[in-house]
Write a protein that binds this DNA or RNA. Sequence first.
DNA 1: TTTTTTGTTGAGTTTAATTCAACAGTTATA
DNA 2: TATAACTGTTGAATTAAACTCAACAAAAAA
Lengths: 302, 302
Amino acid sequence: MTQISAIPIFTAVIEYGSFSKAAEYLGVSKSAVSKRISALEAELGVKLLHRTTRKLSLTEAGNNYYKHAIQALRFAQEAEYAATKLQQVPKGTLRISCPVSFGHLHIAPLIPKFLQQYPHIELHLDMSDIRSDIIKEGLDLSLQAGSLQDSSLVARQITTLNSVLCASSEYLARQGTPKEPIDLIKHNCILYTYHTVVNEWGFIKDADEEVIRVTGNYQVNNSEALRKSLVQGLGIGRLPTFIAGNDIKNGDLVPVLNNYKMPNKLLYAVFPERQYMPKKVRVFIDYLIEHFDRDNPSWDQW
Amino acid sequence: MTQISAIPIFTAVIEYGSFSKAAEYLGVSKSAVSKRISALEAELGVKLLHRTTRKLSLTEAGNNYYKHAIQALRFAQEAEYAATKLQQVPKGTLRISCPVSFGHLHIAPLIPKFLQQYPHIELHLDMSDIRSDIIKEGLDLSLQAGSLQDSSLVARQITTLNSVLCASSEYLARQGTPKEPIDLIKHNCILYTYHTVVNEWGFIKDADEEVIRVTGNYQVNNSEALRKSLVQGLGIGRLPTFIAGNDIKNGDLVPVLNNYKMPNKLLYAVFPERQYMPKKVRVFIDYLIEHFDRDNPSWDQW
DNA sequence: TTTTTTGTTGAGTTTAATTCAACAGTTATA
DNA sequence: TATAACTGTTGAATTAAACTCAACAAAAAA
């Protein structure tokens, strides 16, 4: 079925009424056009054009062919346009997933302004802590926290997700402030079971990492519940700074062991293909990068 | 606009859900399919297919592309069918021209049986003595008498058109029968102005041609009028045998100078292209050849 | 009558299509 | 769990198609 590739040439000849003019329009030599038309006629076993007088005319078969061929050409052009328009213009449905906590606190508040800037985008935001297969779920983008990601997907770092050890000032007044990580074994440590490593907390000073096994009387997989329990003076806990930042600013929580760093995570925008990113995806990623500092985000400044 | 040539490949991949199966269907290697799809994506600047899991899936752009591409493919297939069906099946409108006299006497009587044999053909018969440009007039076939024809058209000889010199037996009894061509200068010679050479009649014996300039008191461009004047004993005249044949059989006309031959013409079927003749044209030419002897037609046998 | 333009075609060049073979990765099977 | 089978990719090489150039024949224009 190779005759389809000659359709643009044949229809140009008909529209321009001349091999020479069609050749000029197509950017090839007139002999190329002549040979391609002859080859098409040979393939079909049909004369499509009379060319014994200087003026071209269609045979009956040629006329029949043209009627359908011009439609084929138009649909092919429509196909090209339909496929490529998403690359050039930020429009259409943008489907994104992100972690629940981060989404509530830091993504959702950004969306109204984004949609004002890009009125032709319709955004579907799916907040879920379940790591999804973005191709299977038809997502354009997935914001994920981690350090390593699926090697077949590709990603762009958006920001850094630090953690901080903290408690209420009421708790610390009552129980004393730990000076070294080893002091934590005497404290009620509230465990965040959502993290992959639950009860072994790492502390980094200089190039050394010290790991302390901690215990406490409360474990919870919800960061908001954890946060509230800390604010109410139940114990000491490790929270992502993007959650604790405001409480720390307000004095509701106090960071402890500040001269130590805890292992951090990165927030990635993960997308299915590195090549040929649709414009709507591109503009959203750029918008996030504009709003979040890659290494020193706003919630880390208290 | 080269992406059109990849459409059959792309749509096959979607329909079969597999590069490997599409390759098998298309009769090419799977690497050919892989390269062609990648080249299409590069040309469009768009990812059309996700292929990170074993199961292929369309991207949004790929889905948009496919919807229009499958229509383009279908119209291209329709175009091919529409163009080629006339080559394989005798159907459609057959437009023919032929000389008036010959048409009335020998073509028109054949048409009913032809159309019974080919019920899907609709025949338009244009009887005219004006030599037409068959391409300009959109004709499929033109029956023409002559010896040389337009070099850009192509032709197939159908039969031979002889001429015969004749008069009524009443005229010959009254005026005597000419024994040699030179005797004609004493006779009333009725001139047929339709012929290109009107009043110089050629006579061929062995390899010699003798030309006699003749005169008479009546010239006419209509063969039927000429025929009737001869039958009524006005004089001697030259008629095509396909016209005079019946009258000679009936004894209404008598051939004279029978041992001489007169220059003849041939009847050609002229058609626009030698290549790729539509079936309906082919079957009509074959039908004529079947009915008329090429060199010794029925009207020459009296 | 001469010049210009059109379409054709052989020969040669360039580009695209294709194959082969090897590979990485996933699924199915033993 | 290990192995076999299958899928899609890709570099290198081969083949086929597309294309150009130049020369030509023929018709239209000047």
